Amino acid sequence: MRIVFLGTSAGRPTKTRNVTSVALLLGRHNRFWLFDAGEGTQHRLLASKLKLNKLERIFITHLHGDHLYGLPGLLTSRSYFEGAGPLRLFGPPGIREYIDCAFKTSEAHLDYELDIVEIEAGTIAEDEGHKVEALELEHRIRCFGYRVTERPVPGQLDLAALARLGVPSGPLFGKLKRGEDISMADGTAVRSAEVVGPPIPGRTVAILGDTTPCANAVMLGKDADVLVHEATFAAGMEEKALAYGHSTVRDAAGIAAEAGAKRLIVTHISSRFDDEAVARMIDEVKDVFPNIEAAEDFYETDVAKN
């Protein structure tokens, strides 16, 4: 899993930061998911290595413009990419009406299947590799955060034990790895549990929309390998942040600490702060959560395995 930040500004773009969008690469032939699509997101994609025909799912946190004004253009442009298959779009109630209105008035047509899912809290998507959960956050309008959990993978084969038992390498190794017990040619039974280590836990990434500090933010970030949290304002501006339904960098650090997250990356940073100010903001809250960093546009990072 790899995270790519395509837009990290709050409210409006700056010369160096576009409005919100985050891509999550899943390690399957450059396939990726997109979280929010502020205006200009497709331009950011063009400047990256990501291709729209590899985009499988889009998750919108809420219906404020800096999180979805880039969506109609991105969806339309995707039709021009060869091999663009079906796409699922998840978002709060109202996302379907927004897309339908944009396409109707512009007479846009897609050359692929678009499945729009208006979500409620809970598990919203599952496949063989991942589970996606959503919970409501506290913002000026209805807003969600997402938690992506990678499913566990089988443990490592104990090669020494296999050698002692005389199991020949080949298809039998694969069966044991998949959890199947086997019988060898001489009738000896070998149980998978005897030669395969415990399952390896999958990774967890939590990507939150705009929010003030709340219990659901902690739940989404619980023990996450990476928590992506907004930090619109600097520490000391908590009253202003609360009035606008946002968080300070100290709020984000507090949520990460309470959740037991392993790593915190803050984004959605007000245009009032330049790079030097952002660096100071981060240093000021390392006493709350040391493993914190601020994203910038085109910043990429791997989600480390446990």
Rank of each mutant, 00 (worst) to 15 (best):
P171A: 12
E118A: 03
G197N: 12
A224F: 05
E300P: 00
Y146Q: 01
L137R: 02
C143V: 04
D186K: 06
L172Y: 11
R164I: 03
V218C: 07
D287E: 14
L220A: 04
A23Y: 06
I99E: 01
P290Y: 11
G83F: 07
A252R: 02
I207W: 02
K177V: 07
A121K: 05
S77F: 13
G65S: 14
S169P: 07
G202R: 03
G166P: 01
E180N: 07
H64N: 11
G236F: 07
A259D: 05
A37R: 00
D100V: 13
G155D: 09
H109Y: 13
W33Y: 15
F59M: 05
L172T: 06
T149A: 11
A259W: 05
E238V: 06
V190L: 12
D115M: 10
V288D: 00
A125H: 14
A277N: 13
D283A: 15
I60S: 01
A47S: 15
Y98T: 06
A163T: 12
G245V: 08
R44P: 05
T248N: 04
N18T: 15
I119Q: 00
T76Q: 09
T232K: 09
L45H: 03
P154N: 09
A256G: 08
I255G: 06
I119A: 04
E194L: 06
R140D: 13
P171F: 15
G174W: 07
H139N: 10
T267N: 09
F273C: 02
F173T: 04
E230R: 05
A253I: 10
Y98K: 11
A160T: 11
E126S: 12
L159K: 02
H268K: 12
P201H: 12
R142Y: 01
G197F: 15
S48Y: 06
D158H: 07
A10W: 14
E194F: 14
R44H: 14
L46E: 12
S79C: 06
A160C: 07
L208Q: 01
G94L: 01
V190R: 01
D251C: 11
V285T: 05
R57A: 09
Y244M: 11
S21Y: 10
Y112P: 00
T267D: 09
V148H: 00
E276G: 09
G179C: 05
G83K: 07
L34E: 01
F298N: 10
A224D: 11
H43K: 14
P13A: 15
R151Q: 08
A257W: 07
E128Y: 10
S21R: 02
E150Y: 08
L157M: 05
F81H: 11
D66T: 10
F35K: 02
A217W: 02
S192F: 15
L89H: 04
L137P: 03
V226H: 02
V148S: 00
E180D: 13
H67C: 08
L114F: 09
V249N: 00
G202P: 06
I99S: 05
H246F: 05
P13G: 07
E293Y: 06
G202A: 08
N291E: 15
A241W: 06
I58F: 09
K131T: 14
Y69E: 11
A121C: 09
